[in-house]
Amino acid sequence: MHTNKLANPGPLGLMGFGMTTVLLNLHNAGFFPLTSVIISMGIFFGGMAQIFAGILEYKKGNTFGLTAFTSYGCFWLSLVGLLLLPRMGLAEPSNAASLGAYLALWGVFTLFMFFGTLCANRVLQFVFASLTLLFALLAVGNMTGNHAILTFAGYEGIICGGSAIYLAMAEVINEQLGRTVLPIGAVEVQPKAQAAVTA
């Protein structure tokens, strides 16, 4: 009997998210200005690679992975659109209120997705919890114009992205070596109670 083991697309999506998030939040923390480095990363790795990973999660029957990677891939593409469309004369620039609403909606989505991680490993839970906080900080910071909150969000975002990078590499290395080298805090899922059979 022929069996075809499918590869795990999760590390690709996590790395696309993690590296792009770290890069953008290095800017938010004030280390360098917003340049083509971030925009290009947002299109090709944060955007395209995550969407590609999401499609592969569909093939594996993973609804959570499909929804998460495809959504956040589109988030990065839409963020690039927010930056580039006004410069191309195709749309008006976003004001603080609309940008804050955009970020807040992504925060609400991420909070719901966080609840979906409660049966997954601890590192994935941390990724989504810290991402929820990041969107909240960015939404409040933009709506209030508080530069200190936005700077703090940058540092928090670096930690969030770094945790996704760690999880991606843990999944790759642990699978390659066939043992746990980088722990991810695996959660044991309790089997569903067997229904009593009555005669």
Rank of each mutant, 00 (worst) to 15 (best):
N25W: 04
K192N: 06
M41P: 07
I158R: 04
A7P: 00
L79T: 15
L138E: 11
L90R: 09
H2W: 11
F135R: 10
P86R: 13
I43F: 09
N121G: 09
G107P: 09
M113E: 09
N4I: 14
T132S: 12
T151Q: 10
A104D: 04
K192E: 06
T35K: 08
G16N: 11
L26K: 05
R87N: 07
G13N: 04
A139T: 08
I43Q: 05
A68F: 05
V127A: 02
V140C: 01
F44D: 08
A53L: 13
S36P: 14
I55G: 08
V80G: 05
L103V: 02
F112Y: 07
S40R: 00
F75A: 02
V108R: 02
N4F: 15
Q50T: 05
L34C: 01
A136E: 13
V140Q: 02
S78N: 13
G42S: 05
T63Q: 02
M19W: 08
A196D: 15
A170F: 04
N28H: 07
L134C: 13
G42N: 04
L99K: 05
A153I: 07
G154Q: 02
F44K: 12
C160R: 08
A186D: 11
F135T: 12
K59H: 09
G89C: 06
L82Q: 12
L90F: 14
A97M: 14
Q176A: 13
A186K: 11
T144F: 05
K5T: 15
A120H: 07
A136S: 15
S36N: 14
A129P: 06
G13I: 03
C160Y: 09
K60L: 15
V127C: 07
N95G: 10
A139I: 09
N62H: 08
V187L: 08
H2L: 15
N8F: 00
L167H: 03
S163I: 08
G161N: 11
L85C: 08
T67K: 02
L85F: 13
L26G: 03
Y102K: 03
L111H: 00
W106E: 04
A168Y: 01
A136V: 15
N62F: 05
E171T: 14
E175D: 13
T63H: 06
G116V: 01
L56K: 11
L66G: 00
